[in-house]
Amino acid sequence: MSLSLLQPSFLMSKTRSYAQILIGSWLFLTAMAIYLSLWVAPLDLQQGGNSRILYVHVPVAWMSILVYIATAINTFFFLLTKHPLFLRSSGTGIEIGAFFTLFTLVTGGFWGRPMWGTFWVWDARLTSVFILFFIYLGALCFQKLSVELASILICVGLIDIPIIKFSVNWWNTLHQPGSISRFGTSIHVPMPIPILSNFANFPFSTRILFVLETRLPIPSFPESPLTEEIEA
């Protein structure tokens, strides 16, 4: 079985054209998401134009969690193999995830100000997302001291993910329960369309950042002895 995918040279040769495809897809989906959010989706009767913030806030919140899970998987494989590509991938994931989580908190605050009368409350959902942001920041700081310590923090921090997901069901919170699930949606059909459009768009921008940032230090990476032994 070949593990050439783990070779830095293989990744460098294959990601150039891959990045071009991602950028083209991202530009198309971005234009479509903006059009759907601003001109197709109707205004909410109670929230007015403030509801358009949710078209970005909701998919960004989803991405902050998905990026964390992907980062934890990369971190686990790094702890298992000590391969530098897994280390670099998890480092990139931490940076991207921290940005998405911060953007989640900021957009949530701007939505909450006219709806709740304040930018912030110590609500269970908001607080657990705030903790996720500090886990990301802690991992970024620990990476400079010990990559193993940062990796362990990421793995332990997985406990916060189900808390974020189920906090609105476990406690009485100001944050409303999810309106979109695999069983359907509780909001008017045209409104989830821009949310799902942005959610389809953000993975492309995430992959672009991931590919470009992961490529930067690769020229200094040695070829993995592990993969050379297996291929031999």
Rank of each mutant, 00 (worst) to 15 (best):
R113Q: 14
V106F: 15
L43Q: 03
F134A: 03
V211C: 05
G24I: 14
G178F: 07
L137A: 03
T118L: 10
L79F: 02
W116K: 02
Q143D: 10
V189W: 15
F166G: 02
I152S: 05
G97N: 11
F77P: 00
T214G: 00
A33N: 07
W122F: 15
A98W: 15
L212G: 07
C141H: 08
D123G: 12
Q7G: 01
G112E: 11
S151R: 03
Y55T: 02
P203E: 05
G97M: 09
L22I: 12
I73L: 09
H175N: 07
L29C: 11
N74Y: 15
P84T: 08
F103W: 15
G108W: 00
V67T: 03
I69F: 14
F204I: 07
L102Y: 12
P219Q: 02
R52G: 07
S2M: 02
T101Y: 08
L102G: 09
F202A: 03
E213K: 08
I218S: 04
P177Y: 06
Y68E: 01
G91Q: 13
M115R: 03
L85E: 06
G91S: 11
A232S: 08
G91F: 14
A19F: 14
T185L: 07
N201G: 11
I164R: 00
M115I: 15
M63P: 03
Y35S: 00
P162V: 05
L102D: 06
W122L: 13
M12R: 14
T30N: 12
G109I: 14
R207E: 09
L5Y: 14
N50L: 10
L79R: 01
K144S: 08
G157S: 09
T214E: 10
Q176K: 10
W39S: 00
L66T: 13
F77S: 02
F134I: 01
N198W: 15
R16E: 10
L85T: 05
S205I: 15
R16S: 05
L216Y: 10
L126T: 08
P192T: 02
T81D: 13
W116T: 09
I23D: 09
W62D: 00
S186P: 06
R125H: 09
P42N: 02
I187D: 08
L105R: 12
P114M: 05
F99A: 10
T92S: 09
L212Y: 04
F130N: 00
T118A: 12
P162T: 06
A124D: 04
V147H: 14
V60F: 00
A33C: 11
Y35C: 03
R16T: 13
E231W: 15
V121M: 12
G157W: 07
F86E: 03
L80K: 14
S9D: 12
I164F: 00
W171S: 01
H188S: 03
A139C: 09
A200L: 15
L85Y: 08
G184H: 09
T214M: 09
A232P: 08
G49I: 11
G24Y: 12
G117R: 05
L38A: 05
L105S: 13
W62P: 03
R113A: 04
F130A: 04
V56A: 08
K165Q: 06
S146T: 11
W116G: 11
F78I: 06
L209R: 07
I69G: 04
F221H: 05
T206I: 13
S17W: 14
Y55E: 05
G117V: 14
I218M: 13
W171C: 04
G97P: 15
T30A: 07
